[in-house]
Simulated scan of single mutants.
Amino acid sequence: MDFGCDPGEWTDAWSATGISHHWALGTGHCIAELKALADLMDVEFVEVDPA
């Protein structure tokens, strides 16, 4: 995955946005399962396209 910068810097910048610690970051091969789980739990699922 290309973050467009150093992955550590990206993580620091992303964390600085104030997003809570209740998040999950998964790669494409898990997306169907994550969507299904979010649906079952009635929680929002956000897919970010890295392209």
Score class of each variant (00 low, 15 high):
34 L>I: 06
30 C>H: 09
29 H>T: 14
41 M>H: 10
12 D>I: 11
9 E>R: 14
1 M>V: 09
4 G>Y: 12
41 M>V: 06
22 H>D: 08
46 V>D: 02
27 T>C: 03
39 D>H: 03
1 M>N: 08
8 G>S: 09
7 P>K: 11
10 W>Q: 06
15 S>I: 06
29 H>M: 13
20 S>A: 05
29 H>D: 15
27 T>Q: 05
50 P>H: 06
2 D>N: 15
20 S>H: 03
4 G>C: 07
6 D>C: 04
35 K>C: 04
16 A>G: 02
50 P>Y: 06
33 E>P: 00
9 E>Y: 02
15 S>H: 08
50 P>M: 07
9 E>V: 11
12 D>A: 14
36 A>P: 01
30 C>F: 12
8 G>W: 08
30 C>Y: 09
43 V>I: 15
6 D>W: 04
14 W>D: 00
24 A>H: 09
6 D>F: 05
36 A>K: 11
20 S>F: 00
12 D>S: 10
40 L>N: 07
35 K>A: 14
9 E>C: 00
48 V>T: 10
51 A>F: 05
36 A>S: 09
26 G>A: 14
1 M>P: 04
26 G>D: 08
5 C>L: 11
49 D>M: 03
5 C>Y: 03
34 L>E: 02
20 S>Q: 05
2 D>C: 05
22 H>Y: 01
23 W>I: 13
44 E>M: 03
47 E>L: 12
39 D>L: 02
33 E>T: 04
24 A>N: 12
42 D>R: 11
23 W>D: 01
1 M>Y: 10
2 D>F: 12
23 W>P: 00
2 D>A: 12
6 D>A: 10
15 S>Y: 07
6 D>H: 14
7 P>N: 07
17 T>N: 06
42 D>V: 07
5 C>A: 06
1 M>Q: 07
6 D>M: 04
12 D>G: 00
